[in-house]
Design a protein around this nucleic acid. Structure first.
Lengths: 345, 345
DNA sequence: TATTTTTCTGCAATCGATTGCATATTCAAA
DNA sequence: TTTGAATATGCAATCGATTGCAGAAAAATA
């Protein structure tokens, strides 16, 4: 029942007493074809409900008009937005998207990348998983002559096109803002330091402290606090210190910041008067918590369009090697109630 | 620079002085191959960094181990969760996912489906766009011998496998709950009625009213209020009525419910005492608004796994036609503060 | 030892679309 | 009318992997 034989160009050719070559030329608008013949072919193709077999075509042409995307989690806001951004552009160009998710696992990421290579995608777009410990698989992509674009979480040592956020600057500005609001002792919830984004955010934090001659207090810098639960746990400890911090920068995510807010409220700390909070990512919910949470917008959809445009502008059909290039998108600090001590007073 | 020639089975064959047939058999573990030869092939393949060309393989084999997914919006929570669910299963089975987004546009949806057909995906999984006005393109999928599974928003008249939520029942229960809490005049914010899900939710609403002998008041049934803005606008009107409703069921989405909440609060209506609110979808933010919003959880990730499992269990490699079958997932009413009048008093 | 069975490998066709080259036809310029 | 260019179409190879068939070699059985 299933495999009703698909219609091919040979079927059309036979019916019109021409060869497949002619049909192919008519359909692809390539080379000389008599206008009348062409119309006939088109008409017959429509009648027979012909659909081009992209597999065959791609095999012959040596390219697939397909871009493979590997992200840690498809259903994480930031990534699904980036994907949507990529899609907006690739769709216009008639490109397809194969989406893989690494689940933050290096092993799975490697498998995904290999599958994409096997699929002969024209380009692989990736944001690496949190536990990446080497980038051989990405080097491999390059070796196979496949374009590679990294975004957000990137392996800095690989010479590829990259689209990143200026995490350091954003983080720096966030801390400056907190200091400007009068907070004196600012804790940092940091993410896995093997990821560039978290390293950069920490650097921004340190740079801001330095600027204001504040000594770094390692006891209020908490590692790996990047979920709501971990953020909550860290906060419980921080606020139980003899001299607790008066602000917490959840540099990992807004979820973490939410954990901070909930625990702080539960422990009777008034936000923002007794405790300032700043998150990262501008998740939708940050606007509607009470108080609303100060955070950093990453322009995720734009990041996606930037990635796609980069491909078409820089790599597209060019056959030459490409000079590595990094596009940096400036995130925006969004000041909300959770860190507005001055305006509150 | 770019097109470093990829290694093929012929390269391996040449090096070992055998034919491609042997190499193919060795690599695919198919048919007779001398163990020693096989090991040699495997070793050489690894050395040369050989990657199978899936295009060629798929063309020859007539199937792609790929499933195409079409959703209205990739970066909409519900859909990205379903996709994540699908991915979890398909990944285990070694299948690939091509993701398309219809942007709620019928025309684009048709194009996406056609692309997927051209790509010879083994199965298309779709949730139709809001402005679908016919389903020829889906019939076409079937005609091409491609499996089709619909989920959530389905074209009921098409005889395919379907995975849906029991929207009617969920809606019914939500209204019963509101009535049970003492709300007497319950407004409905409804979605586009060409979509099954919104029709069903309305039916559930009507059925619940009927059960309690409440007459339907058409003036408090608002069409197409499925964004936050539209929900807000509708609420502004509803609450300005001479006798405003004392509860609003935003059957379209939690965003709409959020709009309701914001406007109600702004207009000085106390939630839940003066106005009960119930949303739909259990978006993350519903838990952290104040008051938190009563809503309905759709088990979106499960829906994805159900879809994928359905494919492998029912369609997989079977060559027969399939009896249409509908899997209905029971959503769960999550009662929160926004509708808990009794417990408040 | 003769015969059958099993294992191994190669040949060549196949999947469907594309394209360089060759041939044939048309049309226009000389 | 002759010549050259432009137009139309066909032939056959190609992309890379798979597989039915056939022959050869090895192993098992009579």
């Amino acid at each position: 029942m299933k495999s009703k034989k698909r219609v091919t160009i040979y079927d059309i050719a036979q019916r019109l007493n021409v060869t497949a070559s002619t049909v192919s030329r008519a359909l692809s608008n390539n080379g000389y074809v008599n206008e009348a013949t062409k119309q006939l072919v088109l008409k017959t193709a429509a009648e027979l409900n012909y659909k081009r077999n992209t597999l065959a075509s791609n095999l012959r042409m040596g390219q697939t008009q397909t871009i493979g995307v590997v992200v840690p989690r498809i259903n994480q806001n930031f990534f699904s937005n980036v994907i949507a951004g990529i899609e907006a552009i690739t769709y216009q160009k008639g490109y397809n998207l194969i989406i893989c998710q690494s689940d933050e696992l290096h092993e799975k990421e490697v498998k995904c990348v290999n599958t994409l290579i096997n699929q002969h995608v024209d380009c692989i777009v990736i944001s690496v998983s949190a536990d990446s410990y080497n980038y051989d698989h990405l080097q491999n992509v390059l070796d196979q002559g496949i374009r590679l674009i990294q975004f957000d979480r990137v392996a800095e040592e690989l010479e590829t096109l990259k689209v990143i956020n200026d995490n350091e600057q954003a983080s720096f500005e966030a801390i400056c803002h907190l200091i400007g609001q009068g907070y004196k002792k600012i804790a940092l919830l940091e993410g896995p330091q093997n990821l560039n984004i978290f390293r950069q955010r920490k650097i921004g934090y340190l740079r801001a402290l330095e600027k204001f001659n504040i000594l770094v207090d390692e006891t209020i810098v908490v590692e790996n606090a990047w979920t709501k639960e971990l953020g909550a746990e860290a906060t419980r400890k921080l606020l139980s210190l003899r001299t607790p911090p008066d602000a917490i920068f959840a540099s990992t995510s807004d979820f973490s910041a939410l954990g901070v807010l909930e625990v702080a409220t539960a422990m009777g700390f008034k936000v923002p008067t007794q405790l300032g909070i700043c998150g990262y990512s501008n998740e939708a919910f940050t606007e509607i918590t009470s108080p609303s949470i100060t955070t950093i917008d990453q322009f995720s959809v734009n990041m996606g369009t930037a990635v796609a445009n980069l491909y078409f502008d820089e790599l597209g059909n060019k056959d030459t090697s490409v000079t590595p290039k990094t596009i940096s998108i400036k995130p925006e600090l969004i000041v909300r109630a959770s860190s507005s001590k001055k305006s509150q007073v």
